[in-house]
């Protein structure tokens, strides 16, 4: 089976039409579905949060059959993810896309679990600590995108499960979790 780094690729990755945007509606819907699954799987396994449409992205090229997704096709498939709430455009020009292989709600649950497991209720952490601290190493939270993390924390704050303290710079924002 073909691999991209340590990521296992599905067989249809070598099917040339997979890389040509299909014009027929039914066929295209099916094709988009397969791309959506693959993009989410890949980003999750590689901890990729942002895809730049104008940069090289390994998943969008298959050197074995010498095929590359066109810019239009990338935009179509990512838009399909956006419409399902699994991604968001980060700019008006649709040049950068934030991939949510976990939805914000799921990320919030993930943080709560993390807090529980490490007995961090009622204690204060910096946001940066959650991303790269010793406790989060080896969990899904390690290396989480800052925007995604901040939005998950905001959601917790709304639900009264966390309080965010503004620091002097973005780096030392603090969070207090409540039980």
């Amino acid at each position: 089976m073909q691999k991209l780094g340590d990521f296992k690729l599905p067989h249809f990755f070598n099917y040339p039409p997979y890389f040509t945007l299909q014009p027929v509606r039914d066929t295209r819907e099916k094709q988009a579905q397969l791309w959506k699954e693959l993009i989410l799987d890949y980003c999750r396994s590689q901890k990729i949060f942002v895809i730049g449409l104008e940069e090289d992205f390994p998943l969008f090229t298959n050197p074995v059959i010498e095929r590359t997704l066109s810019h239009e096709a990338r935009q179509v498939f990512l838009s399909a993810l956006v419409s399902e709430g699994r991604a968001e455009w980060m700019d008006k020009g649709h040049k950068k896309c934030l991939i949510l292989w976990l939805r914000i709600q799921d990320w919030a649950d993930c943080i709560l679990n993390f807090v529980k497991e490490n007995g961090l209720e009622d204690s204060v952490m910096t946001v940066e600590e959650i991303r790269s601290g010793i406790e989060s190493r080896g969990t899904e939270l390690a290396g989480i995108d800052r925007t995604v993390l901040t939005r998950a924390l905001r959601l917790l704050e709304q639900k009264g499960k966390a309080t965010i303290f503004k620091g002097t710079s973005a780096d030392d924002e603090g969070v207090k979790f409540s039980a």
Partner: peptide, 18 residues
């Protein structure tokens, strides 16, 4: 069928997406 457009030209394959 479905299509494959590449520098090699315009080709058709059996539709496997379904």
């Amino acid at each position: 069928l479905c299509r494959d457009i590449s520098p090699e030209g315009f080709r058709f394959y059996i539709n496997l997406f379904q």
